[in-house]
């Protein structure tokens, strides 16, 4: 059962990833990206990392892709650039997805070992994070601070524009 789910998710992830790359309209790329992340979240779920799946969805699909959408919509970047291969785009993505799934299935066949999956509880994750990885956790706060300050400084209007 888990193997079938794995194959299904593989198909989704790969097909949508391909669609992201070949789509002409940036909005299409963003939406396909969201589908890809949904697939990845599902993958995390069947591997016993529920917390990670939700966080992945929230951060990537919920925040990052929304950011992308904001940028596209605010600057009117959704002009479609025509390309002679555009009509093959859907087939490319589906084809890639299909091929990858087949490849995964074929690769899994002869592999001897199947690992057991145990679900990781959020409590255990939290304990581990704030006990062993407290340092990196605090440092990541500084990382965000730097990112925020950097972006704000970069993109604020110059003196002339403000006055």
């Amino acid at each position: 059962m888990k193997d079938l789910l794995f194959l299904a998710f593989t198909f989704f992830i790969t097909a949508s990833a391909m669609a992201v790359v070949v789509a002409r309209n940036p909005i299409y790329s963003v939406l396909n990206m969201v589908v890809c992340f949904l697939g990845v979240g599902g993958l995390y779920l069947i591997w016993g990392a529920p917390f990670l799946a939700i966080v992945h969805l929230i951060v990537y699909a919920g925040a990052i892709m929304v950011l992308f959408l904001f940028v596209i919509l605010m600057m009117n970047l959704n002009e479609v650039a025509p390309s002679p291969w555009s009509k093959w785009a859907p087939w490319a993505s589906i084809g890639t997805g299909g091929l990858t799934t087949l490849g995964v299935a074929w690769a899994s066949h002869g592999w001897p070992t199947h690992y057991a999956v145990s679900v990781a509880s959020t409590k255990a994750l939290g304990l581990r994070l704030f006990q062993a990885y407290a340092g990196p956790f605090e440092l990541s706060a500084i990382l965000f601070l730097a990112a925020v300050i950097g972006v704000v400084t970069m993109t604020r209007s110059s003196e002339k524009e403000r006055s």
Binding site: F6, T96, V104, A107, W111, H114
Partner: peptide
């Protein structure tokens, strides 16, 4: 979970990226 499949998926995804 089968490691071989994961490797293939990951490789393909990274290549697409």
């Amino acid at each position: 979970m089968n490691v071989a499949g994961v490797l293939v998926l990951t490789a393909v995804l990274a290549a697409i990226g």
